[in-house]
Design a protein around this nucleic acid. Structure first.
Lengths: 356, 356
DNA sequence: CTGTTAGCGCTTTCAT
DNA sequence: ATGAAAGCGCTAACAG
């Protein structure tokens, strides 16, 4: 870029005085129209019991629009004891599932007139949900969406002091959980590979302390026991490194599995790398399924079959549940009804021993 | 784990009555201690001009602690005309850069006593930053962190009505931008590959309308012109698909480049897939550098060399800049000083024509 | 040293 | 059909 390029600093525009126009208040409209603020309030809020002279009514509306009136959310909230905001506690992992979850929640909240503030859960030092109660106590939020990675045993009671909902997690007491059908995801995997002759399976997933992982593991054990299938569950860090280690471990197993499911995208990269390095062809010698769906899976060396989870729906359902709690509705766990879906790609093949 | 497992619904705990204890107010403490609320306020806020009888002072502190007092952020904000919150407008792409940016911003904001609410920019219908001004006007936020994907030309003026800062973007007028050294990233790429003999380069990146892309393209053109290097810039959607298409296009070029840089992780997957499908070995026939750093790059079929950008620092610097604006400080653009770093892996090799 | 007073901007009975 | 008045919980002059 030369000096004529639009990248040059336009010094004539530097330090332009910031014009932070003071916003119009109820009383400004009232004075302009010549009525009392309460009248304006009623009109602007569409008070059902209102009966305002149409002429005044129109004038108020007109002036409000013309002045660009914005209700002060603070004052309103103070009076109504309702902030119109939720806090969403997320472990800000690289894992894309949080992004989609967040999107679902944000969208639904916006529809219902709530804003969402995101609180990051530090991965190194996960805190009990109670640590975020202050947000409600300080009237910064009406309720808490909690998706910490901690297994619930860690944090005792005292949690329900603020309206909250556990997202994709089960909290210490029932009635506040919004979860997906993890067992269904496991079943999809097991059905898919057993249909192709696999009898010896593995699951590589995050720490057992994570509730979703826990539930998947339990579902898998139960299902495999019932069908008399071999199963190894490997818990490891939800990172590429973790996946790599677990895969290496899996390959050393006396009775080596022929199909595995992997709990997170990051782990998956590690697993695939480990298999590649050990010259274990996919799906020739090992079928692989990912529990994280992501578009990039279709573009990998060998496109990876995955289970797509209704994450946006989960986020949206969580917001609905929280709204219901804030409104004093009844408390019950919700299982997101949108189904898990198996997305077949090319990483799953017939059981190699059948071909031998 | 069988049916005695803690997975069973503990129906005894269902529908536990929600105990939303009303929080203690200033006046509760005042009454308990037998002083006026203003005294309590002074003590609790550590009013510098205070001179309170130590005995009372201690009693107030004790009672406040004992009652678990939490200042009502709403009331305080209403009075002080300062909310203690920022809104961060992000295009919630899958691209992991937003996650790291978000993390940096959240962390710094928390340090400074601000909460951050995330507003999602719908990718399908990007809105001008002005569309988020209402958040400030409604006193929901003190300022705006804006990272929309729009190139700034699209949205005219009228933006500076609320304190704001453009993050990783340049807004319509100087003085409000917090950006990184994109040109430096480009230079890193060009230096790295030219040192290995490459003379004909390509850049595959997002739409030219995105400011960062624009800046990288301009920097690349300038640099290559100066050094008499061939350069093709391909703008395409920031998706796997987009990357695939661009790579295919690149391979059809009369003078085929021997080294390319790719603007986003998603595109990278597409590019690698296209090269694989066309039997173009990496780095044998094509060297590849990613402008998005991510741990997974090290685990790909051929580990991909990348340029790591100081995204967390960017987020943190943006918050600092916004705080300074809110406090009426001077307005100037900031360039994040933390450097871009080239992370060499295995996707870059010597120029093939040199070997021939 | 501490209490009084006066709001911040809005909603909501209760009158008229 | 509209105004008056009270008050959400807190802070900040200003008195005393």
């Amino acid at each position: 870029m030369t000096s004529r390029d639009d990248d040059e600093q336009d010094s004539s525009q530097r330090h332009a005085a910031p014009v932070h126009r003071r916003v119009s208040r109820l009383i400004d409209i009232a004075e302009a129209v010549g009525v009392h603020t309460s009248t304006v309030s009623r009109v602007l809020n569409g008070d059902p019991a209102q009966s305002v002279r149409p002429e005044i009514y129109q004038r108020i509306l007109a002036v409000a629009r013309q002045q660009g009136y914005r209700p002060n959310a603070l004052a309103r909230a103070l009076k109504q004891r309702r902030v119109g905001a939720f806090a969403f506690v997320i472990p800000l992992l690289r894992n894309p599932i949080w992004v989609r979850l967040q999107r679902g929640a944000l969208q639904r909240a916006a529809e219902l007139g709530y804003v969402v503030m995101i609180m990051e859960e530090p991965d190194d030092d996960p805190r009990p949900p109670d640590a975020y109660r202050y947000l409600v106590e300080e009237s910064r939020a009406d309720g808490l969406l909690i998706a910490t990675s901690l297994r619930v045993k860690e944090h005792a009671d005292g949690v329900s002091l603020a309206p909250h909902v556990y997202v994709n997690r089960r909290g210490p007491r029932r009635g506040n959980d919004v979860i997906m059908d993890e067992a269904g995801a496991v079943r999809l995997f097991v059905d898919h590979v057993t249909k192709l002759g696999h009898r010896n399976l593995a699951i590589i997933d995050g720490p057992a302390a994570v509730d979703t992982v826990h539930r998947r593991a339990i579902a898998a054990r139960r299902l495999c026991a019932r069908r008399d299938l071999g199963l190894t569950v490997l818990h490891t860090a939800a990172t590429e490194d973790g996946g790599w280690d677990a895969a290496a471990q899996m390959l050393r197993l006396a009775l080596r599995p022929t199909a595995c499911a992997v709990g997170s995208l990051n782990q998956l990269f590690g697993v695939l790398a480990a298999l590649r390095q050990a010259d274990v062809p996919v799906p020739g010698a090992m079928s692989v399924v990912s529990f994280d769906d992501d578009e990039c899976l279709a573009y990998l060396e060998v496109p990876v079959t995955s289970v797509a989870m209704p994450l946006a729906e989960l986020g949206s359902a969580a917001v609905d549940a929280l709204v219901s709690r804030v409104d004093g509705g009844e408390q019950r766990d919700v299982l997101v009804r949108a189904p898990m879906i198996l997305v077949p790609r090319e990483s799953v093949g017939p059981c190699p021993t059948l071909l031998a």
